[in-house]
Structure formats: structure tokens, C-alpha cells
Amino acid sequence: MTAEGTRQEDGSGGGVLLDVRELKVEFRTRDGVAHAVNGVNYRVSAGETLAVLGESGSGKSVTAQAVLGILDTPPGHVTGGEILFHGRDLLRMGAEERRRIRGTRLAMIFQDALSALNPVLSVGTQLGEMFEVHRGMSRKEARGCAAELMDRVRIPAARSRVGDYPHQFSGGMRQRIMIAMALALGPDLIIADEPTTALDVTVQAQVMDLLAELRREYAMGLVLITHDLGVVADVADRIAVMYAGRIVETAPVHDLYRAPAHPYTRGLLDSIPRLDQKGRELYAIKGLPPSLTAIPPGCPFHPRCPKAQDVCRTDRPPLYDVAPGRASACHFWEETISERGDRR
């Protein structure tokens, strides 16, 4: 398990699968340019689960789309940075080479399985297509592989259900099919964008367990994009917190929950209803996330931050190294990290 921060020297060796460097993405819209991603850095190693945590509009999904090369262009444009996968920059590859990597080495699981699957093709056909296109199998062989995969993600009576269509499966089963599809060609890295958000709690637990187990079994890297602090605590090794298109804190998961080093992270943790707060007012981060067309100068969190000083309004904090494997984009991280976690 690696635990290096996001800003370490050499990125090529040491089992690093994905190394995103200073990635910038903007959307050119009628209302102006929306700066969705403003210099994001993260890396994922083989066998590691990195959680990318953020609220809507934080840029967590756009970053993933840029990595996969499935950004809606236009209006979205990658305007800077590098995305190194096994040391090679995906952004400098030709479309054909990128397409070959996508699916075979790098796969994605989407939030909404119903709209990600084709409603007029059977799941067996959709799963088998992967083997036909990328492995040159015959239709019959491919279907056999599809059934095997469905069995591996524990779909009951998989062989008899390969001919079924997506709408004939429940939400949890459809998400399993999505997982099967991502696993099909044995990728090194899976990016899962809110894979269980649309599911009920009891089904969510089943799917999350399956995903974690398969990740271990195949020693894959996993980037888990989520807004749910509970899911992160359950499965992640490391966590990167995003706000307004930037990573504001990155840390091993235990350290982050024990002592967050950024006021935004602390605010998120404090706003979860907890047992000992029953009957008391919940802590709420004041205000609203900024509009991406008008991100505040200095630290983008300063208008909502209880600690904001003059320097926060003018100087954008870099990612300070807090400890080995930990970084925080707060001028006052030392103060933040030493505060007691339970009450303000």
C-alpha cells in the first residue's frame, strides 16, 4: 500500500497506475467559462482504493471523465495538465490508442446503470460485445464468457439470464452487470462514479462488498467517486477531498477522519448527524458552494470558512505537506489539525 502525497517527485515507478497532474478542465457556456477542474493532482497505485470526495459541482466526476476521455467536447475542454497512465500521457495519445486502453486497462462504472446500459440489447450481448471487439471471439464464445462474468458478480441463475434485457433486472442486479462489464477484460484500474448512490441501503452494502472483494481478488486500483462520507470510511485507503475544482485535502482515510487538516473537511464531518448531538442543532457550513463561473479569489472556500483571514481572501493556498502522505490547501492547516474533532 502506498501512502505518498499527491505532490511527490518521480511518478513513473513504484506501481503507480494513474498519475493526474495539474489537470484543468473548463466548460465554455453561454453564461461564460465554467472552471470545473482547476489543477487537480492525484495518483493511484495498484491495489489501492482512492476515494475522491466532493459535493455536486466540485469537479470530481469531470476529472474522471477527462481521465477516461469521455468528456462532452464541446462544451468541455481539457485546457492543461497531464494524465499519466502507466507513465504515458493519455492526453497525448491518438483517439484509437485511447479507445484500446479504455475497457481493457482502464474501466468505468457509472452511477445510473439503467441509462448506461442499452435497453434494446440483452445483457449477454452487451457483455459479449467486449470480448468480440477487443478479443476477437466468436459470438458464441463471447456469450459463454458473458455468462461466466455474470456468475462471478453473483447474479443468481446467470446462465439462464444472459438473454434478459436490462429492464428485467433490479437496480442492484443492473449495477452488478455494470461491474461485470468493467471487469470483463481484466483492467488495472476501475473508476467508479457514485456506484451505489442510486441503490437502497441494504443493496448498496451488497454491491459495495462485491466491488471491494473483486478489487482485492484482481489486485486492481480503484478510484471511488462519492459524496458519502460513510461509504468512504468503509472501503477507502486514501481520500482526496475536492472543492470548487481543486483538491483541498488528501490523506490516508484514518488520519483524515481522526484529524482533518482543512476546515471544509472538518465542516463536512461535523455536519453529519451523530448520536451525541441528538436534540442539538447540527453544525452547518454556512453559505453555498461557489458558482464555477465566478470562483472567489484566494482560497475558494474563504467566504464559508470560520477561520478565514485577510490572507485567505488574497492568496490561494498551495497544497501544504502536512505529514508523509498528507496535504492540505489551507493557510491555517496546523491550527485546524490540532483542534479537537468533536466540537467547535
Binding site: 443468481p156 433490479s170 442492484g172 442486479m173 437502497d200 441501503v201 441494504t202 443493496v203 448498496q204 452494502a205 451488497q206 459495495m208 462488498d209 458519502d228 462520507l229 460513510g230 461509504v231 468512504v232 470510511a233 468503509d234 477507502a236 482515510v253 484514518h254 477522519y257 464531518l269 453529519i272
Partner: peptide, 23 residues
């Protein structure tokens, strides 16, 4: 028991009951 607890320390202590099947 299925609700994720926002505390990584509780990961191994939790008594999880995984239901099989769907509603």
C-alpha cells in the same frame, strides 16, 4: 447494520448483516 458509518475505525468492529436478494 447496512448503513455505512462515517468512521473508518468502526470498519472491523461493525456487526454487518448482509441480506440476500431483493425486495
Amino acid at each position: 447494520s447496512a448503513v455505512p458509518v462515517p468512521d473508518p475505525e468502526a470498519r472491523d468492529r461493525r456487526d454487518r448483516i448482509l441480506l440476500s436478494g431483493d425486495v
